[in-house]
């Protein structure tokens, strides 16, 4: 089958519980906002998002030979956000990554929060944020079109790099990988994969500009996402652009910053301080303490989810 596991789909076992849980919490918080934003759309949008999710899944099969038997293909986060808007793009990518994990075991279940965050949410935010930089209409449509294609290309490359950067950081924080090895390796490979992403995204968008420009013009509309997205997209891009070379050339520096901030305890201690070594300090280093720490971690996530869903319900009631 034309299905190739991408190096960004983290399987279970590679991330520590704390990193998995924090990633899930961030992902759930962002997704609940995305769901709230898309619920107001007309019901026709829901089948459209479903079919678009299937489209992204199928589009990942379309590859082109690069060199030496390797081939490039689309990841699609930036592309989805540009054609569907940021919130819908995020939901579409979440569905794709969820089904790849659940049905095909491409990516784990406990770490799915991290996978969705790295490959779905951040990529969509960069994709739409940078694309939104282009003015929606000018006197010179050809120039405007080229500007949009250029921005989309930059966004596509950066979105892949952001995913690789986040994945390396998560592996490092989980004590699964050494930062000075995993970061240059991941960023190096994905700098090349990102070029493939850029080429496919730009030429696919150019094709749609030639055949159905109306679909892309409506993608610029205010209702898809406001100008705040520009800020989000540029901020994440800058984060990637500044941190990647800095951390690759000087990983010790990043470790030092992390330990100064209290993320990293001395030596081989686990990189978190709330539940050090999965034990509760006042219970001592017993098995019970570890299990209790696990239960408390699960409880905190549950509480966060509960509060968010509660807030969401209140908001919807206020809307009506």
């Amino acid at each position: 089958m034309h299905f190739s596991p991408a190096p960004l789909h983290i399987p279970d076992g590679f991330l520590s519980i704390i990193v998995s849980v924090i990633s899930w919490a961030i992902t759930i918080a962002i997704l609940s906002v995305a769901v709230k934003h898309t619920e107001n759309l007309d019901e026709k949008q829901v089948p459209l998002m479903g079919v678009m999710a299937a489209f992204i899944f199928a589009a990942q099969m379309i590859n082109f030979p690069v060199a030496g038997g390797t081939s490039g293909h689309l990841l699609g986060g930036a592309f989805a956000a540009i054609i569907l808007g940021p919130w819908a793009g995020m939901l579409v990518m979440t569905a794709v990554i969820g089904v790849q994990g659940l049905l095909l075991q491409d990516g784990g279940l406990l770490v799915m929060g991290a996978n969705i965050l790295n490959m779905g949410l951040v990529t969509s935010a960069i994709g739409f944020g940078l694309y939104r930089l282009a003015p929606s209409s000018t006197e010179n449509p050809q120039q405007n079109r080229n500007l949009k294609l250029g921005l989309a290309g930059i966004a596509a490359w950066l979105s892949v790099m952001a995913g690789a950067l986040l994945t390396s950081l998560q592996l490092w924080l989980s004590d699964t990988a050494r930062l000075d090895i995993v970061l240059p390796a991941m960023l190096g490979i994905h700098a090349l994969i990102g070029i493939g992403e850029t080429l496919i995204t730009v030429s696919a968008l150019a094709f749609i500009f030639r055949t159905r420009p109306d679909l892309l013009d409506q993608a610029q509309g205010q209702e898809r996402g406001g100008r705040a997205w520009i800020f989000v997209g540029v901020a994440i891009s800058l984060f990637v652009l500044i941190l990647s070379p800095l951390a690759s050339s000087n990983p010790d520096g990043l470790e030092r910053v992390a330990s100064d901030l209290g993320f990293l305890a001395q030596g081989i201690d686990s990189p978190y301080s709330i539940l050090p070594d999965y034990t509760l300090p006042f219970l001592g280093d017993s098995a019970f303490s570890t299990v209790a720490a696990g239960v408390i971690g699960a409880f905190v996530v549950g509480a966060i989810i509960f509060i968010i869903s509660k807030m969401k319900r209140v908001n919807i009631r206020a809307d009506k």
Binding site: K44, L48, A58, F64, F79, G196, L199, I200, T201
Partner: peptide, 28 residues
């Protein structure tokens, strides 16, 4: 060359998008 091959793949993705988009209308 590589650019040409990538463009072909990009056109295929665009083509797939249009087919999917129009199909979603019919499905709805």
């Amino acid at each position: 060359n590589l650019l040409w091959r990538a463009r072909t793949a990009g056109n295929m993705v665009g083509q797939l998008f249009l087919r999917s988009y129009e199909r979603s209308d019919r499905i709805y």
